[in-house]
């Protein structure tokens, strides 16, 4: 049992114009990467609410990847700058919440960078495997 590899669960939010397209291109190019990732398509990385990221952790995600267009290359001009600010703030709060900030990755992957997408997912999976399961964040809402 001890030698078994821990397979982490990764939730990714990919912007439609760059990172989702990059992931598509990785598919078209048959670039292989681990099966651990589940991609949620959003129009822009700035669409992602902090609550969605936290909910992913609550649901047992071991890592969350936010991927958007390169700075200056946002399809909507400025969306990724807002993302950057928001994710920076969240990262700084994660320690406080008992979550390891290394479990939240923000990466810029363009529609042409299939190899970067592949490399990112592969590296993230490997790091999370080494880190093991994430501590569960309690859901304090009454409805649950």
């Amino acid at each position: 049992m001890m030698n078994e590899i821990y397979e982490p669960k990764i939730v990714a939010f990919c912007c439609n114009w760059c990172s989702y397209a990059g992931a598509d291109l990785a598919g078209t190019g048959r670039l292989k990467y681990p099966e651990n990732i589940r991609i949620i398509r959003v129009p822009c990385s700035s669409r992602v609410e902090v609550a969605m990221i936290l909910r992913a952790f609550q649901n047992g995600a071991d890592g969350v990847l936010i991927a958007g267009c390169h700075p200056g290359d946002c399809h909507y001009d400025t969306g990724n700058y807002h993302t950057r600010k928001r994710i920076h703030l969240l990262t700084s709060l994660m320690d406080f919440m008992g979550l390891s900030p290394e479990r939240l990755w923000l990466r810029w992957i363009s529609g042409n960078e299939a190899d970067k997408f592949q490399a990112t997912v592969t590296a993230f999976t490997q790091e999370l495997r080494a880190m093991g399961a994430s501590d569960k964040v309690r859901d304090l809402r009454c409805s649950r």
Partner: peptide, 10 residues
Amino acid sequence: CQGCGACAGL
């Protein structure tokens, strides 16, 4: 509106 959702995100 072009539907980026930056407003909805924050």
